[in-house]
Design a protein around this nucleic acid. Structure first.
Lengths: 218, 218
DNA sequence: AGCTGCCGATCGATCGTTAGTCACGCGCTC
DNA sequence: GAGCGCGTGACTAACGATCGATCGGCAGCT
């Protein structure tokens, strides 16, 4: 028995969600789109190395060679997904940070909401972008790493700004950032639209948690 | 160029830590121990499917055939690591929950501390146990799933107990549990002993965050 | 001599990728 | 409008490499 990956399927899911979702502005017409969608699902469930070109082709109901009419390599398919995921996440974060009231509390609430919403609305995309990034070569991952750094900086700045203004009081800003961003990232692993929570509710609750963490305790 | 995974190595780490650590009570003598240690590092950095038997053998400075003198299959090596990780985590959690003051606030603080400590002291073990569990066949993963469920129940019970006693006030107990356990799990990905934080400090800070989340706001 | 731990050689299967071919539909010229 | 060239997208077949796993045998020890 050399390789029976399917034996473990359906029992131990790495991600709860089962619906394939991508941002609406991403065009998914034709075979290229179907490949991207099925790759999203398979990479999220089994990982990049756990999915073969033939697995992906089978899911798309095409032959494996046809994949190469649409994407140069398997790695480029992953790179496309990782890029889409990070760009969507970064777009939402920067918009949340720059729109609306400018006080640290309002900004933090909006940014955490956006962070959590992105992970609840696109769980597969978030799981792939977060956990399969390491499978990319440096040249393909480079642009994405800049987006990640920018997002991290954005959150740190808000926290520090709030501390400086006296509206936040947290023992350690770095640890607060890791906690807030970390709990949001994990949402992608457990959230499922079958749960009795709308993404909006989760985002509101987590934004509340973030403010409880950062605001002064009596 | 069929398969050059090493190209992506050293640049995009899935885990910050680089020190191979296992609980002290685990015997690691001889070749079997070296295999387990190197498998821990490789599975944490590249994933189970991203690590070949020959990669593992090379890291241990033995030939791939020798591996099978110590473990029946590659999957069994992973199963052993996943088992150790979950047992250690569960042992710490149950001990924290049952020792010391019995009020919900004290228990929550101790359990979150234990949860975070386990992830900061053994980041590789936590990453493998959390993210590679899906690569196990159902029969090998079964026992571990029970430990996971027990840990989840433990935290939920403490929260609900605190709510019933009136010392906790949280909009939604389930969401609070996902947030608290989620932020702790992510610690394994970013914590590194080279950072200016001791595991104890992180655990204290996160326990503080958990109580800020659960305690009533003024 | 017998046991233990390790290794070289190799198995069949599967990996990512490529080459070559063929059917279809478009816009072109006559 | 008919015939044609051509790009597109799909296919079959196969490549060399690597996969997980197996086997017999050898060296060193008791």
């Amino acid at each position: 028995m050399t390789n029976d990956r399917s034996a473990a399927l359906g029992t131990l899911r790495r991600i709860a969600a089962s619906e394939i979702r991508l941002p609406e502005h991403i065009l998914l017409q034709g075979t290229s789109g179907r490949i991207l969608r099925e790759a999203l699902r398979l990479f999220a469930e089994r990982g990049f190395y756990g999915t073969s070109i033939r697995d992906l082709a089978l899911a798309c109901d095409i032959r494996s060679a046809t994949l190469y009419s649409h994407y140069p390599t398997k790695e480029n398919v992953l790179a496309e997904l990782v890029r889409i995921g990070h760009e969507e996440h970064h777009r939402r974060l920067t918009e949340a940070a720059s729109t609306g009231l400018a006080d640290p509390e309002s900004r933090l609430r909006r940014v955490v909401r956006a962070h959590v919403l992105a992970h609840a609305e696109f769980p597969m995309l978030a799981v792939v972008a977060d956990n399969e990034l390491h499978a990319l070569s440096p040249e393909l991952a480079g642009p994405v790493l800049m987006l990640r750094a920018a997002g991290r900086t954005l959150l740190i700045d808000i926290i520090n700004e709030g501390i400086a203004a006296g509206v936040f009081d947290v023992p350690d800003a770095f640890l607060a950032v890791t906690a807030i961003s970390g709990m949001g990232m994990r949402v992608a692993n457990w959230y499922d639209s079958a749960l009795p929570y709308e993404p909006d509710e989760v985002a509101d609750a987590y934004a509340d948690f973030a403010l409880r963490i950062t605001k002064p305790t009596p």
